[in-house]
């Protein structure tokens, strides 16, 4: 398969894309819960069902990310060993990949995060466990940085690269999962005029979260591109660079929608046509969410490509 001039291994890209999106949503909904919905001392006066609805979303996203993570692991084992998939799933080969490679060890650490997260979600009445659940989810998502190009960048630059990628992953999770949670919250609140203050508080807080995410994504994305692309010319002549440009274009569309939401729709929640503004806001946030999912599909492919910078030296 061919995307924008890049050769794509479809099963691997699909497994990675689904895994990244599901992992981001798992952590992002918990970030939304902690920063928008229920920050002490002033939780959003919410529709009663939204808390348990979001909890079900987290469980579902976690299940999807575990299944797609397993698929990624097996496909990666086959790619590493150069064996056919049917030969690569032999127990000793999987064990070698799991125990002896950095990729496998990182996946093992992430599996531990999943176990801690599932435990905490099961017993989430205890406040300390909610914080531990958030920490486990952040670990689960942040550790992805060590499976990729950043985990292999050498020296001091490597530390900067990994730190930038961890922050990038967290910010992407906060924005994507936050958008999903916001859409679900707005739908749950419906057209109820009495929910107006809940809507206003939630949208205002999500705006702050979104702004922080976007700022982080831009700075850390620029660092990542500086290290892996190397020059503007390589953005155009390499498959990696072209895929990155598609990603940036999708990101720019998301930013445009976010700007409409923030500067035009959000203020209207507090003035006149509240119900109409709320409905439009739900719609644009949902489109933003779809664009975010498309970004994850591109990212799934980017990690399998040779970064553009490598062509500088050949």
């Amino acid at each position: 398969m061919d995307w924008f001039g890049a050769e794509i291994a479809a099963p691997m890209v699909a497994a990675r894309a689904v895994h990244l999106a599901a992992s981001a949503i798992t952590a992002g909904v918990l970030i939304f819960d902690a920063t928008v919905l229920a920050p002490a001392p002033s939780p959003v006066p919410q529709a009663p069902s939204i808390g348990s609805q979001l909890r079900r979303v987290v469980w579902f996203a976690l299940a999807v990310s575990v299944a797609s993570g397993l698929a990624w692991f097996v496909l990666q084992a086959a790619a590493m060993s150069g064996l056919a998939l049917s030969e690569a799933i032999a127990p000793d080969m999987l064990q070698t990949v799991l125990v002896e490679t950095q990729f496998g060890q990182v996946m093992l650490v992430r599996l531990l995060c999943v176990i801690v997260l599932a435990f905490c979600l099961g017993l989430d009445r205890i406040a300390a466990l909610q914080r531990l659940a958030l920490a486990a989810a952040l670990g689960f998502v942040g550790a992805i940085a060590w499976t990729g190009h950043a985990g292999a960048t050498a020296g001091g630059e490597g530390v900067v690269h990994v730190a930038a990628d961890v922050l990038h992953l967290w910010a992407a999770a906060a924005w994507t999962g936050g958008l999903l949670a916001l859409v679900l919250l707005l739908v749950a609140l419906g057209r109820d005029p009495e929910a107006s203050s809940a809507r206003i508080v939630a949208v205002r807080r999500f705006s702050a979260l979104g702004l922080a995410s976007v700022g982080t994504l831009l700075v850390t994305g620029a660092i990542h591109s500086w290290i892996l692309v190397g020059s503007l010319r390589l953005m155009f002549v390499t498959a990696y660079g072209r895929l990155l440009m598609v990603k940036l274009a999708l990101f720019a569309l998301m930013l445009a929608l976010a700007t409409i939401n923030r500067l035009w729709l959000a203020p209207r929640l507090e003035t006149g046509a509240t119900a109409r503004a709320a409905a439009m806001l739900t719609g644009t946030a949902a489109i933003e969410l779809l664009l975010a999912i498309a970004v994850f599909a591109i990212v799934g492919a980017l990690g399998t490509q040779h970064p553009a910078a490598h062509f500088l030296n050949t």
Binding site: A154, S225, I227, V229, S231
Partner: peptide
């Protein structure tokens, strides 16, 4: 930032 970028790191 992208235009200013001139780094030449190895990624493989």
């Amino acid at each position: 930032l992208l235009v200013l970028a001139t780094g030449a790191a190895q990624a493989h």
